[in-house]
Design a protein around this nucleic acid. Sequence first.
RNA 1: GGCGGCGUAGCUCAGUGGUAGAGCAGGGGAAUCAUAAUCCCUUGGUCGGAGGUUCAAAUCCUUCCGCCGCUACCA
Length: 513
Amino acid sequence: MTRRFYVTTPIYYVNGAPHIGHAYTSIAADVMARFHRLAGHDVFFLTGTDEHGQKVEQAAQAAGVEPQVFVDRIAADFRDMADAMAISYDDFIRTTEPRHVAGAQALWERVAQNDAIYLGAYEGWYALRDECFYGEDELTTGPDGQKLAPTGAPVEWVKEPSYFFRLSAFQDRLLELYEQCPEFLGPHGARNEIISFVRQGLRDLSISRTSFKWGIPVPGDEAHVMYVWFDALANYLSALGFPDTNSARAAYWPADLHLVGKDIARFHAIYWPAFLMAAGIDVPRRIFANGWWTIEGQKMSKSIGNVIDPRDLVREFGLDAVRFFLLREVPFGGDSDLSRKALITRNNVELANDLGNLAQRTLSLVAKNCEGTIPERGEPSVEDTQLLGQVAILPQLMAVQMERCALTDALEDVWKVIRACNAYIDHQAPWALRKTDTTRMASVLRVLLDALRGIATVLQPFMPQTMERMLDQLAVQPDERNLAALETPLPAGRSLPAPQGLFPRYVEPEATV
RNA sequence: GGCGGCGUAGCUCAGUGGUAGAGCAGGGGAAUCAUAAUCCCUUGGUCGGAGGUUCAAAUCCUUCCGCCGCUACCA
């Protein structure tokens, strides 16, 4: 039976414009989705937007528009960003869609039926003027002893009726989950933090509000709307048609992988499985948290003004160079720095020099010396066998890295082979063989063409546009571009198009330093 | 304060008991098919400090120094 693979990005909160951090998580998820499709798996790849909550309500008010108008606008921008980054999502869910509202309410009812929800009161410091709660540590005390919010508004201790989720009842089952399924949560650092957090003891979770309206009504008590996380997390199920178990997508559950930013790892690793356990639904197989990007060594923030829109980078450097950089620069899972210099170096050294130039020199030798057609395979030398062997194991090697969410390591594995190809072509020197042994020359070039085909095939998930062009240049037909097709050599004699550069070197315009 | 992580070549990092590694940067050489790209060789580290266990420690233990993360309802 075909293996199913269900991968998600977080649904992004429409409080602000999309930035490089959103793009990063989505690209990582996209690579996973594309790789599994390449392996012939039945993939469902979900992304979307989280559109409820008080902050959105307030932001809409500030913008002078209805919340729905406001979220329509921002959601469209996120979708545009996803498309600009070539994110191959199968569905884009929005929490304001009726199907999600129905799914979230159904999940609530399941949880409630199992006695995991009770009505209590949410207590806290409330500022009437700001219409919101503040934490004790955010408050200051005014000259007359009045407690004040950071905004200067006076606060008072109030109780608001709220439904609570019995999170405390799930502590042991959660710890058992982390223990028995070590792969449930990654990377290691995030896992340790979550475990120690849960060990400290869990309090019940307030999961409804009456203080604002922009949310999903609680079933049976319309005075309440669901508090954000219950609403948001349910998206992973509602996109599958939950609670309809006959839905065409129902079989994708449990999700294989939820990719998330490290800031929301906790909600996915604690609340989400607890909600599901309470509802009697299987928990997802794996949660993986990625780190933050700093910009030129600085934290990305609106006040510094260094927030980067990934679309700007794409306009300047090209989509694939940006995708490649983000996944290549540092170990996936850790924090990383985005600097202009590093991006240009990666592009020039690894894409233009290592890979682009390898393809160019190989293809132009074939064009000039083999009448532009794929040569026959010759009797393989030790070197030939060794190089082709390295190429042949790439799919398995990368599949293992994908399971680990080690996208950087997967790329490193490919680059080892690319470097080996450059060493091979230099040692074999087909330009010298042209004068002494044209048969061997043709064999050498054929080895290189086969190696390039393998390399381009496995790199498709990372750089879909450029690898498509590379495979075109190698005369690989559309149905010969998946992993299984690599088992079948291309027929000799097939003619190749005229070679064209794949990755231009980036030359920094005149510096004005 | 508590819990956890990190500190290895100029830079980014890999390496969890057995003679210190990769990429980039630096130096020398080769080649000239190619996007002046490539290949080969090479400089460079008392593996944060100290102590301990061991025949043997970057790798285990103790302690100290420095940096970072988490410590719940912010979506």
